[in-house]
Design a protein around this nucleic acid. Structure first.
Lengths: 191, 191
DNA sequence: TTAATCATGTAACACGTTACATGATTGC
DNA sequence: GCAATCATGTAACGTGTTACATGATTAA
């Protein structure tokens, strides 16, 4: 139930609409979580039914009306509870599911050139991913003020994690491309 | 639809039961995918309905009867198709969802000691994860023979990816523990 | 005698994705 | 005039998780 708890975490800092939450996930947390807009509204719904949040309709003249969510005491407690009991998340952090690796694993079925192409695309993704962290660090600086100053170091640690993994993935991609190309040349020189 | 295609990939090398597939995922592919036993049987069911696989009941005296699945022509084509069209998998490879990072992101809400404890557990998981690759490489050597020799290099690349990421995650964890501990000491010396 | 291995499944639920619908306001 | 922003949702489907059921054989 990580998305629900992520929402609780964001609401702890202040009331928000579903739309705000969606933008926050996409702008600042995309390197660690990614959710569909429609899913966020659905989760808010079930969270309200469970009594973790309450919503209030706010009428606006210039823009569409909105529904602002805030934490209840039960929501605060649920967040605390979740944070205090890491469960299996830790064990799963390394494994989980990687569609890209699954493809690569079975790439013997297709041509080596196609695989190299895929790796090159992947390499580009790594570069784009790494570039995105400039914005992430800026967002951290902007947000981590006043009440939120003490969270800053944790935000920085998560960003650092993403950045280091991205860097390693990039190195791996470059190594791998080299390996496949060299084997290819060997094959060619043999014939 | 990655699990379905992973199953197709394994069946390409030869007919198998759901049980065999399950064991293969858990023994050799756990570092890149993890599926529930019940899910595998369900996927096989829908795959058969789609005509990607066919099953044959095999009666055994000494052991429970079993259902052996093999690829149809349509299944082979589907696998080829999937491999040739990487789609969004590549873009998603770096981002996706990380419950562990989500926790860390909101760890300002709990004590620093608790967070350090979590990081230490995580560090242990990294070590265990890295240790598992000995078996993985052995499995690769054992399996990559005869017909399957040409897949070996791809298997090795995926394993190398996992290993490199695991190594980086370990370094990150150790750095992070140090950072939090040092800040703690600063705090203490100020009071 | 207890646990592990072999072998297959059902049911219910939780979570994630895709497609679609609506409609005003603001900036280029 | 067109795209972007603001703002909220529904419906259907696909995928992943949890809990449970069954029952024989074999190795410690």
């Amino acid at each position: 139930m990580t998305l629900k708890h992520g929402i609780l975490g964001l609401l702890k800092a202040g009331a928000m609409t579903g739309y705000d939450l969606d933008r926050t996930f996409k702008k600042s947390l995309s390197f660690l979580w990614h959710a569909q807009t429609s899913q966020i509204y659905r989760e808010l719904d079930t969270m309200e039914k469970r009594g973790w949040v309450v919503s209030e309709r706010v009428v606006q003249d210039d823009k569409p009306n909105k529904r602002v969510y805030s934490l209840t005491q039960a929501g605060v407690e649920e967040l605390q509870d979740w944070l205090s009991n890491p469960g299996k998340d830790i064990a799963d952090a390394l494994t989980s599911r990687n569609p890209f690796l699954m493809r690569l694993f079975f790439s013997g079925e297709i041509g080596e050139e196609q695989t190299v192409l895929m790796l090159k695309k992947y390499r580009q993704e790594c570069i784009a991913f790494l570039a995105s962290f400039e914005d992430v660090y800026q967002e951290i600086e902007r947000s981590a003020r006043g009440e939120l100053a003490k969270e800053k170091k944790y935000w920085a640690l998560t960003a650092r994690y993403g950045e280091m993994l991205g860097q390693t993935a990039l190195e791996w991609a470059e190594e791998s491309i080299k390996v496949l190309k060299e084997e290819n040349e060997h094959e060619l020189s043999k014939n």
